[in-house]
Design a binder for these strands. Structure first.
Length: 209
DNA sequence: CTTATGATTAGA
DNA sequence: CTAATCATAAGA
């Protein structure tokens, strides 16, 4: 690769591994308001993250890492700052940011974003849905950004998918962050009650539910 | 090899 | 509320 990648030059992308080398509980709220950038062969897709969920280490019964390392979740057990992508319900991809500390298998599920660049590209996979629904929900977000298992394990500090510093707030105000329980993990016992979902509650681009 | 199921979604 | 749809993990 060249030294001056288009992504790095146009955005303040996070290139320090240490930024990801923290618990998912700390990284999750920091991701809200940040840009997710995918430099695809067909063009760039950018979106503002508005909803995420934190999945903690092996003790978290809702996390894939709770059942030990397998070929599917191996990326979670590796170094922070990589993308963990898997297929759920046989048809939807879920994109996660692998966190730490160290090799502790924690990750943040990306649940919703507001597409700010490359909307026509995003619509190739999503069709003529309302803009507010384009990347609402983890399966829809992955589809809109063109993220599938081919990107499992991608390095977020150097690869085609990156995270960038928040866009300058137009009005200088930062939206309030709300915490709720996570979606679809009712089987996780006491961990289902933990408020590990972080979102901008009033944002129109959040998922339903 | 067989079988159960899921960090979801759209639609009735 | 349920169907869709299949890779994955666990068990025989």
């Amino acid at each position: 690769m060249t030294a001056a990648s288009p992504v790095a030059s146009a955005y303040r992308t996070i290139e320090a591994r240490s930024w990801f080398d923290r618990s998912a509980f700390e990284v999750a709220p920091d991701l809200l308001g940040m840009d997710l950038v995918h430099e695809t062969p067909a063009g760039r897709i950018v979106g503002r993250i508005v909803e995420v969920e934190a999945y903690l280490g092996p003790e978290d019964l809702a996390a894939h890492s709770a059942r030990g390392e397998t070929p599917r979740n191996a990326v979670m057990f590796g170094p922070p700052g990589h993308l963990y992508v898997y297929l759920v319900y046989g048809m939807h991809h879920c994109a996660n940011v692998v966190c730490g500390p160290g090799d502790k298998p924690e990750a943040v599920l990306l649940r919703a974003a507001q597409i700010t660049e490359g909307e026509p590209l995003a619509r190739l996979a999503r069709g003529a849905v309302a803009a507010s629904r384009l990347a609402a929900g983890p399966g829809n977000l992955s589809a809109a950004f063109g993220i599938d298992r081919a990107l499992n394990g991608a390095d977020l500090t150097r690869g085609p998918v990156r995270l960038a510093a928040p866009s300058p707030p137009a009005d200088g105000e930062r939206p309030a962050i709300t915490r709720t329980t996570r979606i679809g993990v009712e089987y996780a016992g006491t961990w289902a009650a933990r408020r590990l979902r972080f979102l901008f509650a009033d944002d129109p681009h959040r998922s339903r539910r």
